[in-house]
Simulated scan of single mutants.
Amino acid sequence: MRASKQDNKILIVDDESSSAILMAVRRRLEEEGWLPSVVHPESGWSLGEEFEAATLYAIEEEQPDGVLLDVRFGEDKDDRFKGLEILQKIVKRYPKLPILMFTQYAQGPDRDTAARGALLWDAPVDFIDKLASPEEVVLRLRRLIGTAPERIPVGNRIMVDVETAMVYSKDGDDLIPVAEIQGMKFEILRELAAAWYRSPGEMVPFSKLERYSDGDDPRASLRVRIREIKDLLGVALGVRFAAGELIINVRDQGYRLLPPRA
């Protein structure tokens, strides 16, 4: 029987799932409210083949929101890049499933092979060094899956709190409310912050932001609200944002967020 789908389930495919590195990642995922599920293959075949079959079965049964997949399985030279073969099988069957590849080959003689593997897929696939912090792993998974946390840091000086619908400027460790950014202005900034968090430089189209505008000319109304947001944040931070700063107009397409420099 197929397992019921749970929100934010991450399938972990790694022959070292009990290592200190993976245990730290699993704890961090749980802290985020995500459910890590570890693939445990049956014995009998080569290590790489075991994980390939078990992974495809687990995806079908558990329907995860994302996969954390190691590039290398075991010490046999034939399994050095087995994860790339598993990746190919997953992408063919589930082309929209986000996959974050763990690699030990960020440096060294095998770096080019791993890098080429990252460029083969027109799918939500990314590679990360296996020594990256658990926080970075979670961040990359969030961006792949397309989710944002309840509190979105915008650079080092702005915080967007989605749960309370508040915007804060940061002064050291202190959070200072920017109370004037509410209602439609908050929703516009939230959309921009979430897009930036998922992928820095990501643009939000006019059509999506104009939902938070009113009047006979929603595009003009949107421009006014964008200017108000920039002015209010500028006052809170003690700066004045020019046209090419903080919120950028991408001609005839939309807006994107550019966090202020520290």
Results as ranks from 00 to 15, higher is better:
residue 212 Y to E: 06
residue 77 K to Q: 11
residue 239 V to M: 10
residue 44 G to M: 03
residue 18 S to G: 10
residue 195 A to V: 15
residue 37 S to V: 15
residue 206 F to L: 11
residue 52 E to Y: 02
residue 39 V to D: 03
residue 179 A to H: 12
residue 53 A to T: 14
residue 233 L to N: 00
residue 233 L to T: 02
residue 106 A to H: 15
residue 247 I to C: 01
residue 232 L to I: 13
residue 83 G to W: 03
residue 114 A to E: 02
residue 151 R to T: 06
residue 42 E to P: 01
residue 120 L to N: 09
residue 22 L to N: 07
residue 129 D to H: 11
residue 74 G to D: 03
residue 20 A to T: 04
residue 130 K to G: 12
residue 90 I to Y: 00
residue 39 V to Y: 05
residue 184 M to E: 12
residue 248 I to W: 02
residue 255 Y to V: 00
residue 154 V to A: 03
residue 105 Y to M: 09
residue 23 M to Q: 09
residue 99 I to R: 05
residue 164 T to Q: 05
residue 177 P to K: 07
residue 262 A to E: 11
residue 207 S to P: 05
residue 167 V to N: 00
residue 159 M to N: 08
residue 178 V to K: 02
residue 147 T to V: 15
residue 107 Q to G: 10
residue 255 Y to D: 01
residue 109 P to W: 12
residue 77 K to N: 09
residue 64 P to F: 10
residue 240 R to G: 05
residue 15 D to G: 04
residue 44 G to E: 01
residue 185 K to E: 09
residue 246 L to T: 05
residue 159 M to D: 07
residue 183 G to H: 05
residue 149 P to E: 05
residue 156 N to A: 12
residue 132 A to K: 13
residue 116 R to K: 14
residue 248 I to V: 15
residue 106 A to F: 14
residue 148 A to Y: 07
residue 137 V to E: 07
residue 178 V to Y: 02
residue 174 D to C: 04
residue 201 G to L: 05
residue 258 L to M: 11
residue 198 R to S: 12
residue 159 M to F: 14
residue 44 G to N: 02
residue 184 M to Y: 11
residue 126 D to C: 09
residue 72 R to K: 13
residue 163 E to T: 03
residue 188 I to T: 02
residue 148 A to C: 11
residue 45 W to D: 10
residue 175 L to V: 04
residue 219 R to W: 05
residue 261 R to C: 09
residue 259 P to V: 01
residue 177 P to Y: 14
residue 73 F to I: 04
residue 23 M to V: 07
residue 60 E to G: 10
residue 165 A to C: 03
residue 225 R to A: 01
residue 96 K to A: 10
residue 179 A to C: 04
residue 7 D to C: 08
residue 205 P to R: 11
residue 15 D to N: 09
residue 209 L to Y: 04
residue 190 R to P: 04
residue 46 S to H: 06
residue 62 E to Y: 09
residue 250 V to G: 02
residue 86 I to H: 01
residue 121 W to G: 00
residue 54 A to G: 04
